[in-house]
């Protein structure tokens, strides 16, 4: 390649020297916590107050690592003379993180927003059984769930906001026509 012997060595040392003058990219992990984006799939948190025991997450899970137990309770009628209702009560909600493949399907299918991703990842255990997080532990993770990031300006409006805006506009339009209607008779009188 090169006529000068040791040219390759000099080139290599030049790269080394250049890298030496730059700041190191290595983070001293246990001392310096990594910065993780809000979408990071670290651990699944359960907001059990929202869970209706519909079992969708357990059914949709590709490796069936979600365990749910529940029982039915009858609730006395809200108003006198009403019918008594039955309601599902959650007994057990556990996710086996030894089996979990971190795909996020359970979070996606949850119709009541009871499951969330949290970027927390430091839950390695020496005993595999400890990796099955029960409902209290899953509830604890809920405190670490970050707010989702704002979307790109080119993104479509989230459907909740779009629906809210539509209702607000409809309401404003209705108020305006109502105001106009009350104005016209006043003007006439």
């Amino acid at each position: 390649m090169s006529p000068v012997p040791g040219h390759g060595l000099a080139k290599g040392l030049a790269v080394t020297l250049r890298t030496m003058t730059r700041r190191s990219v290595t983070h001293q992990y246990p001392d310096a916590a990594p910065h993780l984006p809000p979408r990071s799939r670290g651990v699944i948190a359960l907001f059990e107050e929202n869970c209706t025991v519909c079992m969708l997450c357990a059914r949709e899970c590709p490796d069936w690592c979600i365990y749910i137990d529940s029982h039915k309770e009858t609730v006395p009628p809200a108003a006198p003379g009403g019918r008594e209702r039955s309601r599902n009560v959650l007994d057990r909600f556990a996710i086996d993180f030894a089996l979990c493949m971190y795909c996020g399907i359970c979070i996606e299918v949850c119709p009541f927003d009871a499951l969330f991703w949290s970027p927390e990842f430091e839950y390695a255990e020496t005993d595999i059984r400890e990796l099955t997080h029960e409902r209290d532990k899953l509830r604890e993770w809920m405190w670490t769930v970050p707010t989702p990031p704002a979307l790109d300006p080119g993104a479509e409006e989230p459907k909740e906001i779009a629906a809210a805006r539509k209702t607000a506009e409809k309401l404003a339009a209705a108020q305006e026509t109502a105001a106009q209607q009350t104005e016209t008779p006043e003007g006439g009188a």
């Binding site: 996606e108 990031p149 979307l151 790109d152 300006p153 080119g154 993104a155």
Partner: peptide, 8 residues
Amino acid sequence: KEDLPNGW
């Protein structure tokens, strides 16, 4: 799955 985060 979802749109890009702002500033991405």
